[in-house]
Write a protein that binds this DNA or RNA. Structure first.
Length: 298
RNA sequence: GGUACCAUAGCUCAGUUGGUAGAGCAAUGGACUGAAAAUCCAUGUGUCCCUGGUUCAAAUCCAGGUGGUACCA
């Protein structure tokens, strides 16, 4: 009869479905804290456009990994995995369950099952590869990949430059093939994991997206984006809500068109999130108003 | 009330001399290992406003209706 096992509760779901308030209610019921798994809410300079919990909400329950980084800091899934595991170790001393909430599927998976040992991006090498892509094109990079790692060449998405570039990056950095390093081993965690995915009718979700974008604008999204003009080339600002407003500020789009695009791109983002969660059958799908059901099953 | 123009996909619109329809956008499905709110792939949606007529054959021509827009009264 050992200690009861510690448990991580994952709350996933598409953007604007209602994850934030759901997670807060859940954490209150379980008397625990929240870890955010949202690849944009890490950044302290961007709050309105990333739909962070409000200061009032943050005061209700301790949140981790919100506004924990600056937009010019380099960050990635692997760092997230390590950071969350360390955090959980601490939190599990105090709590039997911890809630992790967010919409970044890859990041959630890294915590739940780990991610292979691959090198981080090397800034210089990445720049070189990007230049080579711009000058010589994807065909050239594909030929190179075929030579260096014929097995990955067979399976890689040949029209997706990022996939090809990343493979070459790993190969050049390690001197080993990407195939060899990409083992896709599922790590067993020392804690239990229970995963829920929130969803609602598509029509209703889209309506909520539209309302939320209007709210962001009312709360001062334009100003928030304006402040970040000097940083616009950072990856952290390659983000729905910022890209479209930059175009408006450039005079490339009318405000009306920028808002329309913002809503469209948010809908597409929500769709991509759903595709990610759908193929993972370890999720229990629930409606955001079914919190009682979720608490009971925990 | 009169005249003119218009009515085709969710939206904006193409559609040649009559041969059962196609673009853009929106949408939908999918992929995904250190850029992931990123990046990439795939897919077509129809009472051609209605009723009748001409014709082997009508989105297309003719008549009438209905609705819209503009101008005139």
């Amino acid at each position: 009869m050992g200690e009861p096992k510690k448990k991580l509760i994952v709350i996933a779901g598409p953007t604007a479905v209602g994850k934030t308030s759901f997670a807060i209610k859940l954490a209150q019921a379980l008397n625990t804290e929240i870890i955010s798994a949202d690849s944009r809410q890490f950044y302290k300079e961007i709050s309105i456009g990333t739909a962070k919990p409000t200061p009032e909400e943050l005061a209700l329950i301790p949140h981790h990994l919100i506004s924990s980084l600056s937009i010019n800091e380099y960050y990635n899934v692997s760092k997230f995995e390590n950071e969350v595991l360390a955090l959980l170790k601490k939190l599990f001393l105090k709590y039997d369950t911890v809630v992790m909430v967010g919409g970044s599927g890859l990041y959630i998976d890294a915590v739940c099952q780990g991610i292979d040992e691959l090198p981080d991006a090397d800034e210089k090498l990445r720049l070189e590869l990007n230049n080579s892509f711009n000058e010589k094109g994807l065909e050239f990079l594909l030929m190179e990949l075929k030579k260096l790692d014929p097995d990955y060449f067979e399976v890689v998405d040949k029209s997706n430059p990022k996939r090809v570039l990343r493979a070459l990056e790993v190969i050049k950095e390690t001197g080993r093939t990407y195939t060899e390093l990409r083992k896709n081993l599922k790590k067993k965690r020392s804690f239990e994991i229970q995963k829920f995915c929130l969803n609602r009718d598509r029509e209703e979700l889209f309506e909520r997206i539209s309302i939320r974008v209007d709210q962001m604008l009312a709360e001062g999204l334009l100003d928030e984006v304006k402040q970040q003009i000097p940083n616009r080339n950072l990856n952290s600002l390659n983000t729905v809500g910022y890209k479209e407003i930059f175009k408006y500020l450039d005079g490339e789009l009318s405000l009306e068109q920028a808002i329309t695009d913002l809503k469209t791109n948010t809908r597409r983002y929500a769709k991509r999130q759903l595709t990610w969660f759908k193929r993972d059958d370890s999720y229990t799908w629930v409606h955001p108003n079914e919190i009682a059901k979720v608490i009971e099953s925990i």
